[in-house]
């Protein structure tokens, strides 16, 4: 389905995004890029899995962008903890990493919540396509990459 259709209808306004990455500079870039797509996207940031879990307790987002290699609680540990969490997981998860190992892709099949992989760097086009897929919830299958 074309992302332009959603774009034009302004469907992204008010979208709540949680972005989990240990790189503070990258989080700034992600927020700037998302807000370029739509000024009204609500972007919350977490520096590791532990902080992300605390954020989720507070409020449930529409989409989670997740890095794998992080201190304290890495991406996989975060996902395991998520399954044990009290709240319902109603949001799709997108893995965003600077290097996607085939082993990581295999690993990801264990988590039905993972809908997408994105490899860094990110840019306007890549993120917009990703959002279109995730919001439309059409990328059920793990391994749909948006890398352009």
């Amino acid at each position: 389905m074309s992302s332009l259709h959603h774009d034009q209808s302004g469907f992204l306004a008010g979208l709540k995004v949680l972005w989990v990455d240990d790189d503070a500079v990258f989080l700034e870039i992600a927020k700037a890029t998302l807000n370029k797509i739509d000024q009204d996207i609500d972007v919350r940031r977490a520096l590791n899995g532990q902080v992300a879990l605390q954020e989720l307790e507070r409020a449930c987002p529409d989409i989670v962008f997740l890095d794998i290699n992080m201190p304290v609680l890495d991406g996989w540990e975060f996902l395991k903890n998520l399954k044990k969490a009290r709240f319902k997981i109603s949001f799709p998860i997108c893995i965003v990493s600077s290097s996607i190992d085939p082993i990581d892709r295999e690993h990801a099949r264990r988590f039905s919540e993972i809908k997408l992989f994105i490899e860094k760097p990110i840019n306007y086009q890549k993120l917009r396509s990703a959002l279109a897929l995730l919001v439309d919830n059409s990328g059920e299958e793990v391994g749909v990459d948006v890398n352009k």
């Binding site: 500079v25 990258f26 870039i29 600077s98 290097s99 860094k120 760097p121 840019n123 306007y124």
Partner: peptide, 20 residues
């Protein structure tokens, strides 16, 4: 592996920042 990951992260940031 770690070094390549770190370099790639930094380079990815530089590319994104230059776009911005």
């Amino acid at each position: 592996f770690i070094i390549s990951h770190n370099i790639r992260s930094s380079v990815a940031n530089l590319i994104s920042l230059s776009d911005l």
